[in-house]
Design a binder for these strands. Sequence first.
DNA 1: TCAATAGCGTACCGTACGTTACGGTTCGTA
DNA 2: TACGAACCGTAACGTACGGTACGCTATTGA
Lengths: 217, 217
Amino acid sequence: MLHAVTDIDTSETLTERQKAVLDAALRLLVEEGDQLTMTAVARRASCSKETLYKWFGDRDGLLTATVQWQASKVRVVPVDRKGLDLASLTASLERFASDWLKVISSDTSIALNRVAVGHASSGKDDLGAIVLENGRFALARRLKPVLEAGKEAGFLEFSDAETAFRTFFGLVARDVQIRLLLGDRLELTDAAIGGDAVRATQQFLALYGAKTGPRGL
Amino acid sequence: MLHAVTDIDTSETLTERQKAVLDAALRLLVEEGDQLTMTAVARRASCSKETLYKWFGDRDGLLTATVQWQASKVRVVPVDRKGLDLASLTASLERFASDWLKVISSDTSIALNRVAVGHASSGKDDLGAIVLENGRFALARRLKPVLEAGKEAGFLEFSDAETAFRTFFGLVARDVQIRLLLGDRLELTDAAIGGDAVRATQQFLALYGAKTGPRGL
DNA sequence: TCAATAGCGTACCGTACGTTACGGTTCGTA
DNA sequence: TACGAACCGTAACGTACGGTACGCTATTGA
């Protein structure tokens, strides 16, 4: 049976025990990738397979619930739109860049993205859509207001926020995610991430910083 | 048995029949993703499974050979380093950007990357390394001489070619590859690719164009 | 003409794993 | 205390698929 994958607030309908089971599945997913078995999940979570099937329908349902569960855990605090100056705008952008690099280089993100990519080939479920929705698109939703605010305040110049966002995205992520997904060793230290965040932000400001505003390039 | 994956010129040691079989496997990989079966490959290629095992050892060997076979087909012409002016440099960069976007949005590339990502979780083989070596790293090897030439000629300014390359890579690819791998519909028309190539090149020149050279930003 | 080899098609084997079934245990409730 | 629901642990079932064996055909070479 297919369970609805469009549910957003699954975190509300899950019991503590179910969350614990999904956490176990998540840990197993990080350790073993997509070849995790129902038996392994049951053993790790100290629950019976019958319970897994009752709760999640089938293997795909469990995978979907696991991905949604992880997604629900990374709800972020909205950015405060208070007094906006160039320094705070820069700090916000660097914060976004740093956070994003930390996310995509985390074991959890890598494992989840790998599973979702693997499932995208045979479009049985929407794992890819879920990951995308809670990753790249969620980032855009959170960042665009900041960009718009920067534009309003005269610090940024762009006609299309989507294009500006994608440029920022490219400057931040570059080849990191695809390399990690393909198994490239690429340990990102906190220092390296911080440096990359600063560099990406500076490059973005160089491209989209207003020449006529309170402060130009 | 594990077959060596470091062989580069496998195209030389393959018979025509073997190439035809690998082409069939490749087509099947594009159509069905990683869940292609040995039986399906044998049927599509009109050969026996016994032959597949004799030639390629096991399923992973067949996959590896298929990826290498595709990689060997995309040998590119080296860039001519003739008279370099800003126009030809710009044209070269746009060409690289356009070619790369075409590659990463092709069905073949998407299928191969998906398989390689899936296999990267359990590091049994080096599919990820092969794809990376013939994709992102091959691009860097071909592009860096162009960047260096642009620097020599005074059109570009950078201290580290690798960093400059990765910035270019990010400006070109942005979120395209991960979205496609995750199953996002995102049809890239030739016109869109051309436009993106121009935009990425202009942005790169804005960031790395020499302010003191024959022509500044 | 006659092996001999390569390769096609297919049947077969063993195993891994998704899925189901069932006995036993805990726990909440009357 | 009795009952039932939920759940654990495990055994069992069915199937898909990787891998192997074998018979048959065709081509090659002496």
